[in-house]
Each structure stands twice: as structure tokens, then as C-alpha cells.
Design a protein around this nucleic acid. Structure first.
Lengths: 288, 288
DNA sequence: ATCTCGTTTTTCATATTTGAAAAACCGGCA
DNA sequence: TGCCGGTTTTTCAAATATGAAAAACGAGAT
């Protein structure tokens, strides 16, 4: 069994690409790190780095192992957060997990929340990975998927509606954007690899858009690309309507996963801090 | 920052309740472990164990920290599996994740698969936690939920239908089981705490069953309890119909999350071993 | 060709960690 | 009471890990 701590060293060296950089991060001397890596390689039976005079260069194997190592790092971070929570329970900080669009909406309403609740702190955890409430990655999660089970309490916040948007300039030059023919005649901003299975993208393919002109690997880029006039794209109406640069060119669209759920772990549903945040969120999402 | 390896020692001591037991597990001497735990406590600023002459007794804090520590252990295990896969890629072993019911179905068909594919090995990962394909926890996952996104490829296997079942003896003594009044007049086997949000349980509550006679915390107990004649319960028809001890007393029920999806990571969809298993699974789930 | 910069590697004295054995501890039991 | 069985804790010599400084190294610039 390998020394778990060596994984930490491995990650640091991967991130800095050199012993020297890693040494400052870890508070150890370069020779020590070199020895740690050597021992790690021995116990794994793999060559992780090619030593060069300009740094440590990761091997194929090292690259394959990095994501898993990061996962270990995340679980340790979670452990540490739990430690501090055991030592002094957070009574004013709430971790709120959601996708990018909802984060944007929440952020825009955050100032007024802070005004009314100056003592509360909110950690906004934004990502497309669904937070594991069971593992304490967040206190509250907002998703348009209803989780299968677990000790979770749910509450429907509303229904998200989508529509097709384009920039003012693009729409002005392509009047067809308003018509059914847009799916063939317009440029589209779609999703790349990791987002292929977004409901909006599936819908788009069903309408006949097979080859978007631009493929984005990150949700937020849809918005930026549309604003830049690259073409048409699908956005939640709560996002699109707020952008003065954009024009809505279609009716509202109902996607299959339209319901928006607020999910809380059973154990934290009655914490005052959590109640406060929920009571604030519910009206915020009324606007959907 | 704490030494990650100390988490491993901590878990071992928690599991054995004594230094001596942990020492055999870890291959370290008891004094070393005692010193590690002491250092761990120092760096965390917590008392983890009460030392007694009959062993190390965990404190409240230690108990709160154990689940997170286990999570770290799991992520390290995943790391290790990746290491062995990098060293010698598994060409014949497929990890197949699913819920309990689907596992049961798969298991029953497994013999014929092995007959036709004697070289293949299948790891059946059964649980209600959704496997994170992205992290390599499994090669294939079968779920009745469509994941939100990620680099996943999906394929609909069919639609799961449910029905109400009871044991022969119970139904014989309670003819009302066949009628609408069963929701009030019969004993029910329902879900306890962690499974409250199963689609079947939600449906049951909607029919007016608020207080099941027996609450199970594990899906498989529904089946066992029904066979033991405790009352009525909801089962997938593919499971219930195969039990000779059970009688179906209702029409087929369509629950909201009826679609069954086979989910594969994009990166592994074209591996021969994965294709083999998928080609086998598709007809198996045709029976749904 | 030589210098310089940022890196890794060697060296070696020092600090830390380790395990075996012995000692101490405590509850239960005859 | 005294002893046994399971523990933890102490002791101390040996093994191991560490850091500072120096050396080695190679690419690019002068």
C-alpha cells in the first residue's frame, strides 16, 4: 500500500512542473520531494516523470493518474472542512451548489440578500458536477434533476423556460432567425464533447441542427458567443431576457427537464441558517 | 496541512478499536501508531480517542470524521485501481453499476453470458449511489435517471413497469388486496428514512398510504418482507413476476422515472469488452 | 566560447521516526 | 489476594528521512 501523502506530493509536482516550485508549495526541500517521487514511482511500479534539467516532465501514466489524484485531494479537502466544522460549527455560512445559469441568477440577487442578512455568508459552488449533499459538499443544491433517492428533501422552485436568442446585430442581418427555417439557415452555437447530453442540445439536434458552427465546452460560453454575434443559441429565458445585447427570436420552449428543484439534506433542513437561505431563494426563483 | 497518510491510520484504529489490531492491519508497531494518532490529534486540534487499558475509544469528533475519512479511502482505492489499469489495461473485465433490482435481473442472466463469453469477467457494482463514470467507478451504468451532462453516451434500454405484489398466503387471507380499498385496508411494506424519495414510495403516498406497517431501509427487503407475508408492496414487474411465492394484485403501474438508461463514458464506448457487454445487455432488458 | 539562470542531484551532518522488548496498566476471575 | 489476558506506554539503539550547501547540468543569451 502506498503512502497516501505521496499522492499530495505527486499532485504538487504535476502542478508546478518542477521540484523547486512544488517545494515552495509544500514547505519541503527539493531533495526531499525528489526522494518522495522516487519512492512513489517505486511503490507504484511506474515511471511518472522524465527528469530534465528544466524540470520534471510528466509521463503518460502520470497524466492518466492526475484526475484520480485530484479526486483524492478533493476528498481530503472535504475532510478538512468537516474538521473545522466539528471544531466550530458554521452558523452563518451556507454552501449553495448549482449550475452556471442558476448561479448567475443567484449572484444578481445576492446584494439584496446581504443587505437584509449582513451576518450571513454564502459559498456559491458552481459547476456541472452534481454536488453530493450526502458527503457534505454543499448545504443546498439547485438542479433541474430530481435525485433518485438518499436522505434528501426536495422542493420544486419552478419551471425553467428556454428560448432562442441572438445578438441584435446578428438578428438584424439574418431576419430568417425569426422563422422556422432558422434551424437550417442560421449559424448555431452548440455544445462540444462534454456537454453533448444537455437537454437543450438534444432538443436542438431534434430540430435538425446537426452541425453547430461553434461548439463550446462550457455553458457560459454560449452566452458570450451569442453576445459576440456568432449566431443563435438556446438560453434560459431568465438569462437571455436580462441581456440587453440579445434578442429573443422564438417562443418559449419547454425542455423535458424543465423542473427546478431545491434539494436539502434531511439533516440540515432545519438549521436556521439553511432556512434563511431557502426562504430567500424561493421568491428569487419565482421569476422563472 | 495534515499528513494524508495519517487519515489511513485513523481509519484503521477506528475500525479495530485498538492499536494492536490496527498494527497488524497496517504493518506498523503499536507505538508508531500511537504516535501517529497523537500527531494527528495535534495537527487537527481535536481529541479523537480516549485511551483506555482496553483499547482506543473514539470521541464524538472521531465519529463525525469517520465518514469523510472513508470517502478519502475510497478515492485512494479508485486511484489504486487506475494504477493497475495503467500498468496492464483490463481487456476482459467490465465494471457494471446498477441498482439492486437491475442487479438481480442481470445476475439471473449472467450464467448464459458467461457460457457464451468464457473469457469475460463482470464486476457487478450494486448500490443506490449513482456511480461516477467520469471518475472510473464503473464502465457501464444502468439507471432510471438520465444524467444531466458530462461526456456520457446514453441508450434507452426500455421502460420499467411496476405493480403491487403480496405473498400467496397474505393475498388469500386479504381478498381486498385486489381492490382499490387496499390502500387503506391492507398492510404495506414501505421505505424508511434514506429511501423516502424513491419514485415508488412517492406514488404510494399519493395513493393514501401514509403509514406503512413495515419500513425498510434497503430495497431488497421489500421483496423479502413481501415473500414473508408481511403485506403488500410495489415491485418492478420483472422482479415480482419471477417470484413464485408472490402474486400480482394490480395492473401495471407507470412511475414517473420509468425509462431505463444504459450509460457509458464516451471514452470507453468503443472498447471491445464494453461493446460485448452492451450487446448482451440490450436484449436482456428487452424483457422489461 | 563563456556566462547565466533555473533547474536537479549529491553530500553529509543532524533530526526524526521506528520497532523490539520491557514495563506499566486495568478489569475480571479463581 | 494474586494472576491472567488484553491492552497501552516507555525506553533506547538503530534505521530512516531531512535540509543546507555545494556541485552538476543544459539551454539559451551574450
Amino acid at each position: 500500500m502506498v503512502d497516501w501523502d505521496l499522492i499530495r506530493v505527486f499532485v504538487a509536482v504535476m502542478e508546478h512542473g518542477s521540484l523547486l516550485g512544488a517545494s515552495k508549495d509544500l514547505g519541503m526541500s527539493p531533495p526531499t520531494i525528489a526522494r518522495h517521487i522516487a519512492r512513489f514511482e517505486d511503490s507504484l511500479g511506474l515511471v511518472l516523470f522524465h527528469r530534465r534539467h528544466d524540470g520534471y516532465h510528466p509521463s503518460k501514466a502520470a497524466q492518466a493518474l492526475l484526475p484520480k489524484s485530484r479526486q483524492v485531494a478533493r476528498s481530503v479537502a472535504l475532510f478538512s472542512r468537516t474538521v473545522s466544522d466539528v471544531k466550530s460549527p458554521e452558523r452563518t455560512r451556507v454552501r449553495l451548489a448549482s449550475g452556471f445559469w442558476f448561479s448567475k441568477l443567484i449572484t444578481s440577487e445576492l446584494p439584496s440578500f446581504h443587505e437584509n442578512n449582513p451576518d450571513m455568508e454564502i459559498d456559491l459552488v458552481t459547476g456541472h458536477q452534481i454536488a453530493d449533499l450526502d458527503e457534505g459538499e454543499a448545504d443546498i443544491s439547485i438542479r433541474n434533476i430530481r435525485p433518485e433517492n438518499g436522505a434528501l428533501v426536495m422542493r420544486k422552485l419552478g419551471e425553467a423556460l428556454y428560448a432562442i436568442y441572438g445578438s441584435r446585430s446578428y438578428v438584424a442581418q439574418n431576419a430568417v432567425a425569426y422563422e422556422e427555417a432558422r434551424f437550417e439557415s442560421c449559424d448555431w452555437i452548440g455544445a462540444a464533447e462534454p456537454l453533448n447530453s444537455l437537454a437543450s442540445q438534444i432538443w436542438l439536434r431534434e430540430q435538425g441542427v446537426q452541425e453547430p458552427k461553434l461548439r463550446c465546452s462550457h455553458t457560459l460560453q454560449f452566452l458570450d458567443a451569442a453576445k459576440a454575434g456568432m449566431g443563435l443559441t438556446i438560453l434560459p429565458r431568465i438569462i437571455g431576457d436580462r441581456e440587453t445585447d440579445l434578442v429573443r427570436v422564438s417562443e418559449l420552449i419547454e425542455l423535458p427537464s424543465k423542473d427546478v428543484w431545491l434539494i436539502v439534506h434531511e439533516r440540515s433542513r432545519d438549521l436556521p441558517k439553511v432556512r434563511t437561505v431557502i426562504n430567500w431563494l424561493v421568491p428569487v426563483f419565482k421569476q422563472l
